[in-house]
């Protein structure tokens, strides 16, 4: 998977304290992984080592949230020969919650429209998808001909279905779980293909192209 092939693996962070406590965890509210999350990340690392899927990665990135940074720290021995330091890019963060960062999820009132911010100083759905689309597009350019891995969030991975897949993957509606991943591949100027979308234990069954 190199040379004429671009491969981008988008890993969803493992379970965090914020997930368990139903906290809106952005830059301040996210305090890293739960015990179960660390175990999920270790399972992903084992699957990646077993399959060598990301052993030739040359780019590693995470969002700026602790849950993503910690997930990468755990899986990094299986990425790029274990020598790849990740860069942290806010473009791959989940929706920025503004003044609700660190508040209980119950405090969130669904915004009136997709243009309305989730909270004062927070992002709207449109703003979030625009930012994630731009981050994914920039990554695709930077990673051309190589393999990149990004530890990010469910919303960014959902956005990739549109940003990379156009309308071909509109039927993929299920969120992938914590510590799961989506792997995109593009050969020369062909379209992006989603070659894997699922949990780490399914990696052992092999990379295939089940979708579309």
């Amino acid at each position: 998977m190199s040379g004429n092939t671009t491969t981008i693996a988008l890993v969803r962070h493992a379970e965090s304290h914020a997930n368990v406590g139903h906290i809106l965890g952005s830059h301040a509210g996210c305090t890293g992984l739960s015990d179960r999350g660390r175990e999920q990340a270790r399972q992903l690392r084992a699957a990646l080592l077993e399959t060598s899927v990301l052993s030739n990665a040359s780019i590693a990135m995470t969002s700026r949230l602790a849950q993503a940074i910690e997930t990468y720290e755990i899986i990094s021995p299986a990425v790029g020969g274990g020598r790849l330091k990740a860069k942290h890019d806010c473009g791959f963060c989940d929706v920025h919650c503004g003044e609700l960062d660190g508040a209980a999820e119950d405090d969130l009132v669904l915004p009136e429209t997709i243009y309305s911010p989730v909270a004062p100083q927070g992002e709207s759905w449109v703003g979030f998808v625009r930012r994630a689309t731009r981050a994914l597009t920039s990554l695709a350019l930077a990673a051309a001909g190589s393999t990149a891995v990004v530890v990010t969030h469910g919303g960014v991975i959902k956005t990739s279905l549109r940003a990379y897949g156009g309308r071909r993957y509109h039927h993929v509606e299920d969120d992938i779980g914590y510590g799961a991943l989506a792997i995109w591949e593009k050969v020369v100027d062909n379209e992006w293909t989603l070659i894997f979308y699922g949990e780490s234990n399914s990696l052992m069954e092999g990379i295939h192209a089940p979708l579309p």
Binding site: Y115, S124, V126, G127, V129, R130, T133, T137, R162
Partner: peptide
Amino acid sequence: DSFGLVDLLVMLEDELDIVLPDDLLTP
């Protein structure tokens, strides 16, 4: 649709070399 709208937004900004501020983005 909503994703098409974001595609359009990104296209507008790229092709016209502008940034549309958040407060302009309304229904």
